[in-house]
């Protein structure tokens, strides 16, 4: 497991809440784009935890039922500040965007006919495609070092083929990857 980012000090509850509030509630493109933005902020910019800890939260969130982003927020908060961090991250990442969804639902008919709203959403959704591609790169990049390159390329290619061509559900692909990784350790760490 790559650990290219050195870890600095743990955040305060206010700092943790501010990051999960800002990124959890203002990133378009779904949970993957938001998790990628959180990865950039927490691992790359602030270095609150390293790639190994990010991988742990990310992988477990993917195999937890429900909304992956909220499981990721809870796991990250718990890892950084225990129960209060978990609850704070979960609440600040979920309450404002859920309130926004409820408000948009109430006024959806008038919002959806608004030309300015439609134009702005089109741009935000285009940016979310960029964010998702960036997320792919940021996730895979730590494992492209020479000893792991072949294994990484095989897993990426197989997961894409199983998802896109064979139509496997994400959970099945991830569980298979876990089993393969368990038995195929690759080069010494």
């Amino acid at each position: 497991m790559g650990t290219r980012s050195a870890v600095s000090v743990k955040p305060s509850l206010a700092q943790l809440s501010a990051v999960f509030f800002r990124i959890g509630n203002f990133t378009f493109g779904g949970g993957s784009a938001t998790t990628a933005a959180l990865q950039r902020e927490i691992v790359e910019r602030r270095r609150w935890y390293d790639t190994l800890q990010f991988g742990l939260c990310y992988a477990l969130a993917r195999v937890t039922p429900g909304t992956n982003l909220f499981a990721f927020s809870t796991a990250s908060g718990w890892l950084l500040l225990g129960w209060r961090g978990a609850l704070a991250a979960l609440l600040v990442a979920s309450v404002p965007c859920c309130v926004l969804v409820a408000l948009v639902t109430v006024g959806f008919d008038s919002w959806s006919r608004n030309r300015f709203f439609q134009a702005a959403i089109a741009g935000a959704l285009a940016a979310s495609v960029g964010a998702l591609l960036a997320s792919f790169w940021l996730l895979v990049r730590p494992y492209l070092d020479r000893p792991h390159l072949f294994q990484t390329l095989v897993i990426v290619a197989a997961s894409i083929a199983l998802s896109l061509l064979a139509g496997w559900p994400p959970l099945a692909v991830l569980l298979l990857a876990g089993v393969v990784g368990f038995f195929w350790k690759g080069p010494a760490q």
Binding site: M1, G2, G29, G30, S32, L52, G55, L56, Y58, A59, R62, V63, S128, V129, L132, L133, S135, F136, L139, V140, Y143, H148, Q151, T152, I155, V156, A157, A158, S159, I160, S163, L164, P170, V173, L174, L176, A177, G178, V179, V180, G181, F182, F183, W184, K185, G186, A188, Q189
Partner: peptide, 25 residues
């Protein structure tokens, strides 16, 4: 080491699964 390797594989496969989901989006 096996747990680390399994974790790494899940993260990499997640990236692949997310990339697959990006195409229709």
């Amino acid at each position: 080491p096996r747990a680390k390797s399994a974790l790494r594989a899940i993260v990499i496969a997640s990236a692949g699964v997310s990339l697959s989901a990006t195409l229709p989006l």
